[in-house]
Design a protein around this nucleic acid. Structure first.
Ligand SMILES: [Zn+2]
Ligand SMILES: [Zn+2]
Ligand SMILES: [Zn+2]
Ligand SMILES: [Zn+2]
Lengths: 162, 162
DNA sequence: GCTCAATTGTTATAACATTACATTTCTTAC
DNA sequence: GTAAGAAATGTAATGTTATAACAATTGAGC
């Protein structure tokens, strides 16, 4: 894969199928693990995938409002908690926002390239660096539980458009 | 340096002199760059260094209250903005808190090892990984502006104490 | 001293997140 | 099938973090 094709993946793909696939995978994983992917949780996950950008809890809440669900913040935050705990979504601390995980697995910690202009975020699936970060921490005698890696800047499209 | 001595540095040092040095350095840097390190800004920086842990904006505000300064949030946030812009403090996104930078220089982006138990944070000054992250981003044709790297877990002391 | 820009004060509000407790729904055992 | 207990959701209130908008003050350069 060169950067050209990577960018194509980032910029445009069959988003309908990407949402669909993510939901299928989520259902499968939850079934396997005996987890209850309830209506609320599923809908939150779907909205996150549909947004195609990091989305805030209150944006999700607003959508719920438009759909006639009369929900309050805890409804959304609980669903987000469930989805995060089970590796289906990541929270992006620097944005107070959430993204669907492209490689859902418990315990996995995502890294992101976040475009300041188009506001899209691309998950870093590369694992070499993560391992290096782990060994860096170990050198300092530090026991890692989780990592936040968020790189902010300009994506290809936005940069070339300037 | 082995991890033993690193930890000693992390755990206990002459904190009074560490605060003092940080303030001296800050004053020097601001003078060199023609920046105004005003009373408010200096006091915010001092409180950050005194805390010895990541400290929240509203904690700083509370201190100001105790000192008879009748300040509102913008006062503190403006000072924090100044200090961040000029590389004197870092914001830790996963904690909504601030730490003094141990190697103040404009544009430099800090990484942190954050202990979940004692709440201390140790800045990662190692630069190799940062460069690798940059090249990872470049491979994806992404232009980096800033990086957030926050590793959460247990520091030596807290782990051995268990 | 005058002028303009930078800084700070002040009020209000926005944005993000949690606590606490009541109610409903689901699961399991009988 | 039903009762009991656990899990999930509803609801109201509140806590926490951050910014907008505009007025007043201060400081540097002329
Ligand atoms: Zn992921
Ligand atoms: Zn972009
Ligand atoms: Zn630093
Ligand atoms: Zn610790």
């Amino acid at each position: 894969m060169n950067s050209q094709s990577d960018n194509a993946v980032f910029q445009q793909h069959n988003h309908a199928s990407c949402i669909h696939d993510a939901l299928i995978t989520a259902k499968k994983l939850c079934k396997e693990r005996g987890l209850r992917l309830t209506d609320t949780r599923l809908r939150v996950l779907e909205l996150i995938w549909q947004s195609h950008k990091p989305i805030g809890a209150y944006d999700i809440l607003a959508q719920f409002g438009q759909e006639g669900r009369n929900s309050a913040p805890p409804t959304v935050y609980r669903a987000l908690e469930f989805l995060q705990e089970n590796g289906l979504v990541h929270r992006i601390a620097s944005l107070n926002a959430f993204m669907g995980c492209v490689c859902p697995q418990e315990g996995h910690q995502g890294g992101f390239l976040i475009c300041k202009q188009c506001k899209r975020a691309q998950e870093i699936t590369e694992d070499t660096l993560r391992k290096q970060l782990l060994s860096l921490a170990q050198e300092q005698d530090f026991e890692v539980e989780s990592m936040t890696l968020e790189i902010s800047g300009l994506c290809t499209t936005c940069r070339t458009a300037q």
